[in-house]
Design a protein around this nucleic acid. Structure first.
Lengths: 359, 359
DNA sequence: CTGAAAGCGCTTACAG
DNA sequence: CTGAAAGCGCTTACAG
């Protein structure tokens, strides 16, 4: 590693260290000839500035810390892409650390990044206490994606999960479904709670009393969706539709239905949440709620850069969007298949238990 | 950012800078009482060592550069996880840069990492010329995952893609399929070429002449798999099975079949490659070839750490594994459904054109 | 075991 | 516009 340093370049160009530094970092005016001489020397020697030395001297690491939960999570992947693109060309580089959904690991990851130190911080979800984040935000630009911080709402790229949860269930209710099974996410997860609240609100608005046996809970992973559907069958309460609180659980639910020879959507409608990349290629393509993760990641990167440049921006609003695909359909009443949507409140009554595909 | 420095700690503990440094970095013996005093001062002040200063002084950045193609790629995600876990607790941190499958971007990403500088380098795939990598490997520990470098085979975590491609097609041939459509990956991609060669070798070994109309090419993305199947139908040459060179294209192919009402595996068998996480939850679960990406990532991290510690290890061998799930089955001859596998070479003849589900 | 000092490779006021 | 010099926060020979 006898690497070439600025000093080598300066000597080769016949200028002082300061001058070489100025032209290479574009900090200040330098006469045309010296400028050319330095540039020539730099390219001839293949000079690569040492970012570490530069950081120490300038006080800026040019590193943006990104706390993610699982680097390979399909859900956050989109956001990471957005962050990466948002930082492109800025000279800043993202550095990742994973919390693995565990508070203590996340804490350690955070400390690791801060000690580096990073110039800004983006958190994807996570469970670091609001108070810690508020304190941190006073020290350096900080933005969250997918979680909110009390008092720092302008720094939070978020989506209204209550509204998203509501949309899912409304979609089914409007298509005549009343016996709607629900696979919730983990209670500890704010998004999971919000989506459930939206679901419950929709049921209330349609005067549907959800049967307790139709409520199940998973952990946002595929397998838990599969098991949830299995337990639904064990309980025996009929249903005509399933809402999964995220796409991964919907995948598991889909497989459980396939195993039992139950058709989607003919026998049971299925709806997910997140619009993962592969959801458009499910069999059948999955109706789901899209969160603009890429856009939120991109906006987070932009926000950090703006804050670093002294031009802070309030977080833009992000809307969820129901993506209607082929896994949901109108409820077919057994004797006389429904041919039209029936939004008439008068017929919104009890679940059409008789039409359920199983007992 | 009036952060606490080592000097503050030393002063508070009543020792010299050197002593404080020694206890905090565990570099050398220090008397028990001074040791305690420094530790106390450090925790009381909430001291966080500045990793940048440490790097500059020690000449080690404690950063391992990872070149990936797309940070959110489901394929490399597993490897990233393995790398992350392999580095855990080592004090080294991964820093990512993406090549986006484009040589010039990858080159820039590499330069960015080298300029930081990083202490080691892991490349996931990519197209940097072998010569460049050989030169780099002389400067710092370097390991690739999913590609090989001539003369540096011991640094390459790889799997035999020819063998994997062979396995896929053998699996189908053994189940009686002869009219096998193939969706290849991009020609520029070494893995894609290898898998195709394996496929062709298997056909030769079974004395099957592949019909040119059954060969299509995609770009490893879902949509290209869908279009490939569409073009297959347009061509009109019958087939009873499809091999996709990766799972993502298999997903697209699956959707194209679903759209046409063609059942998998009853009408057409389908096989992928990569065993992405979600492939186990496809409808039906996808038969595919598993590459131990997590393990390769983990081994890459271990290899870098070993090299850094001066105890270089040769890359272990990684084997592909055919994961037989439900998307492939025995070929059913139309008049008399096959009930047993027929490995008798005498009956290995022309494609059973009559049994194809479409014309 | 311990301190004073040099040095890592840059940037950036400070004087011209 | 340009140089000499100080300094970023540490580590690490070098002498005790």
């Amino acid at each position: 590693m006898p690497s070439i340093t600025l000093e080598d370049v300066a000597r080769a160009a016949g200028v002082s260290l300061s001058t070489a530094s100025r032209v290479l970092s574009g900090t200040a005016k330098v006469s045309a000839e010296r400028h050319a001489a330095v540039m020539r020397a730099a390219t001839e020697l293949g000079y690569q500035p040492n970012a570490i030395a530069r950081s120490l001297a300038s006080g800026r690491s040019m590193l943006i810390g990104v706390i993610t939960q699982e680097i390979s999570s399909p859900f956050y992947g989109e956001a990471l892409l957005g962050i990466e693109r948002g930082l492109e060309g800025s000279g800043y580089h993202a550095i990742f650390a994973s919390g693995h959904w565990q508070a203590d690991i996340e804490h350690a990851a955070l400390d690791g990044l801060l000690g580096r130190p990073v110039d800004g911080l983006i958190l994807l979800g996570g469970q670091t206490p609001d108070a810690v984040l508020r304190a941190l935000a006073a020290r350096l630009p900080l933005i969250t994606v997918g979680r909110s911080i009390q008092g720092l709402e302008g720094h939070c790229m978020r989506v209204d999960n209550v509204a998203g949860g509501y949309e899912c269930t409304r979609h089914l209710l409007e298509r005549g479904h009343r016996a709607i099974a629900y696979i919730a996410g983990p209670e500890s997860h704010r998004d999971a709670r919000d989506r459930l609240h939206g679901h419950q609100q929709a049921l209330r608005d349609w005067s549907v009393t959800g049967h307790p046996a139709l409520f199940t809970q998973g952990d946002f992973q595929e397998t838990s969706g599969l098991m949830a559907v299995e337990s639904l069958f064990t309980r025996g309460e009929p249903f005509t539709a399933i809402v999964a609180a995220n796409d991964q659980m919907a995948y598991g639910a889909r497989l459980a239905l396939y195993r039992r020879g139950i058709r989607v959507p003919d026998d049971v409608s299925l709806i997910g949440y997140d619009d993962l990349h592969s959801s458009a290629f499910c069999t059948p393509p999955l109706t789901t709620v899209r969160q603009p993760m890429y856009e939120m990641g991109f906006a987070a990167a932009e926000g950090i850069l703006a804050a670093l440049a002294g031009t802070a921006l309030p977080a833009p609003e992000f809307a969820v969007q129901l993506v209607t695909r082929e896994s949901t359909t109108l409820l077919r009443r057994t004797p006389r298949p429904a041919t039209t949507e029936d939004p008439d409140p008068a017929t919104r009554s009890a679940p059409a238990a008789g039409s359920a595909p199983m007992t």
